[in-house]
Design a protein around this nucleic acid. Structure first.
Length: 552
RNA sequence: GUCCCUGUAGCUCAGUGGAUAGAGCGGCUGCCUUCUAAGCAGCGGGUCGAGCGUUCGAAUCGCUCCAGGGACGCCA
């Protein structure tokens, strides 16, 4: 990447200036490069001289002059200028820029990829909603965040595994099974009360009806305990299938669906507890078993095993993370949790430390709340009670691409309103179509070229000299930086802003530059440019999990 | 009370300690005989919640407030 090349160029120049005594030998801060917002300041700018001013007690402008004198000439850089108060500005050669068009075409769909991750094994776990009810929009946000992040990490050379953790054990599943059994009985005409801690949504009745249709009265003939257990298992399977298909509709898929129950069945829960026990982090108090989080700097201790002998959610999660780090030996684990799990983060990191594992290897992304509304009316999305608007319904209403783009247009940190009315009303003016339209326009140009039988493989890119053409190339060259930024900060939302930028620049080019014209040579050059632009746009859309349509 | 997130244009939100703070939507004005007008060009819009500090330089970092949201369970 050219950015890195420039960084090392500056670093070498500064070191050389020091060697030759032109610059005091102070410790050099890491060189950073930025894109000046004013294009007159060039393509890249370094503020190294400004940062060195204090330590060297020299004027920043003088330092910049001195360093720039030692920067070697390269094929990429056109001019290097020093500007007050002490910036070193780089302008890239037009010939190099246009030459990149061919490079992009050669790279194809791999354009923008890197080896940043060096094949390290990264697990990213997200959604992981209890299979006791349908997904709502908040879950959709985590789903899209996770799947896009996985794409970005794969593109940057990480060995990524996407995982859904199924809470198929514990009291919630029990409540689910009892609720479903009650609805089943009701569906067959029995007057049975629903459990007080049960799931009351309509989907439970639908689920019960489905079971009645398939199995009839079979479960009525069994002992109740057995019937509850079997119906629970059946219902769970159906719920999980539903989760899968709903997520697939959003373009979200997983490599592994991990069962919580398996941790108990294969003894890893016991192993994890034993390990903490050995290390002295576990003890009994008030009839329960506790994890002594306070010895690791936490505010309070936490219960692992209740008075009735059943493990808490926390204990199960400890076993799960034991499995991730100790059993499966992931280099890095990324969890995406909803804002309501915020308090869980630091004690989970404490557990990782207790295992003797560097807590930095666990990264938790908290996706903030989504409130759903129709106009000014707030729509409740609570699972336990009554009516909810499911993610499925939202996707049906708004469309998968628009959903993905919408969620990717905000950082995970900020809470957001999802206004269904607005989402639908704005759908025609939605930025998602703006971006996809640019892609469709390019496809249309390429179709025309094909109809005319134009072979542009030998097009001469050096004919691309006008401002709209070069601006487009410059923007295309930004993608690798954006991907790297998204991967290192774990913030996929940068992609959507880049996609809009790129589309804007393309639309500008399109209105100013006729691609297929009477000028045969120029047509071929521009067709090359446009073909490359299409690749870059498609790559960006693909990373976001969106379609890159040829026609709209 | 403690902890976490947020506060930037009318609205929804970007903004890697750097040069004149941006986009989309909404409002107004123009532009289609030529590759897709789901487009383009232009106009208007700001005490970056407040204050103090660190720095050559702060929307960005620190502290103190204010406002909104969330978490503080032998729920998950």
């Amino acid at each position: 990447m050219i950015r890195q090349k420039l960084v090392s160029l500056i670093t070498r120049a500064a070191a050389k200036a020091q060697e030759q005594g032109k610059l005091p030998s102070v410790v050099l801060p890491p060189v950073t490069l930025e894109h000046p917002q004013n294009p007159e300041h060039g393509d890249y700018a370094s503020s190294l001289a400004l940062k060195l001013a204090r330590a060297t007690s020299l004027k920043p402008l003088a330092i910049a002059e001195e360093i720039s004198r030692f920067i070697e000439a390269t094929p990429e850089v056109d001019t290097i200028t020093v500007a007050p108060p002490g910036f070193i500005n780089f302008t890239i050669k037009n010939e190099w820029l246009t030459g990149q068009v061919a490079e992009i075409l050669k790279a194809g769909s791999a354009y923008g990829n890197s080896h940043l991750g060096q094949g390290s094994r990264v697990q990213i776990e997200f959604v992981s909603v209890n299979p006791t009810g349908p997904l709502h929009v908040g879950h959709g946000r985590g789903a899209i965040l996770g799947s896009t992040l996985a794409n970005v990490l794969s593109a940057t050379g990480h060995n990524v595994e996407k995982e859904y953790y199924i809470n198929d054990a514990g009291s919630q599943i029990d409540a689910f099974a009892r609720s479903l059994y009650a609805r089943y009985q009701q569906g067959l005409g029995a007057s049975i009360e629903l459990p007080s801690d049960g799931y009351l949504g309509h989907y439970m009745s639908d689920l019960a009806q489905e079971i009645i249709d398939e199995a009839g009265e079979r479960f009525r003939k069994m002992p109740e305990l057995e019937a509850v257990s079997e119906i629970g298992r059946l219902g769970l399977d159906k719920m999980i299938k539903q989760l899968k298909t709903d997520l697939e509709l959003l373009g979200v898929t997983f490599d592994v669906w991990f069962s919580e129950q398996s941790l108990y069945d294969n003894g890893q829960y016991q192993e994890a507890m034993a390990l903490l026990q050995d290390r002295g982090y576990i003890g009994d108090r008030e009839g329960a078993t506790w994890f002594f989080s306070t010895t690791l700097g936490e505010d309070k201790d936490n219960v692992l095993v209740r008075g009735d002998g059943s493990p808490t959610y926390f204990a199960a999660d400890i076993a799960y993370h034991y499995n991730k780090f100790v059993e499966r030996k992931f280099d890095r684990v990324i969890n995406i949790w909803g804002a309501d799990h915020q308090g869980h983060v630091s004690r989970m990191k404490a557990v990782i430390s207790a295992f003797g594992i560097a807590p930095e290897r666990l990264q938790v992304i908290i996706s903030q709340m989504v409130t759903l509304r129709r106009g000014s009316e707030l729509v409740r999305i609570s699972k336990r009670s009554g009516d909810i608007i499911t993610l499925r319904e939202v996707v049906d209403e708004v469309g998968a691409d628009a959903c993905r783009f919408f969620f990717l247009s905000r950082s995970a940190d900020s809470q957001m309103d999802f206004d269904l009315e607005l989402a639908k009303k704005q759908s025609a003016d939605n930025p998602v179509y703006y971006v996809q339209y640019a892609h469709a326009r390019i496809a249309s140009i390429l179709r025309l070229a094909q109809e005319k039988g134009i072979d542009f493989s030998a097009g001469d890119v050096s004919l691309l000299t006008t401002e709209p053409e070069l601006t487009l190339i410059r923007k295309m060259l930004l993608l690798p930086e954006i991907i790297e930024l998204a991967a290192t900060t774990l913030e996929p939302h940068h992609l959507s802003y880049y996609a809009q930028d790129l589309a804007t620049v393309f639309h500008g080019f399109y209105t100013q530059c006729r691609v297929v014209s009477d000028d045969e040579a120029l047509s071929k050059a521009r067709l090359k440019l446009v073909a490359a632009a299409r690749l870059v746009l498609a790559k960006t859309l693909t990373l976001m999990g969106m379609a890159a349509p040829d026609k709209m």
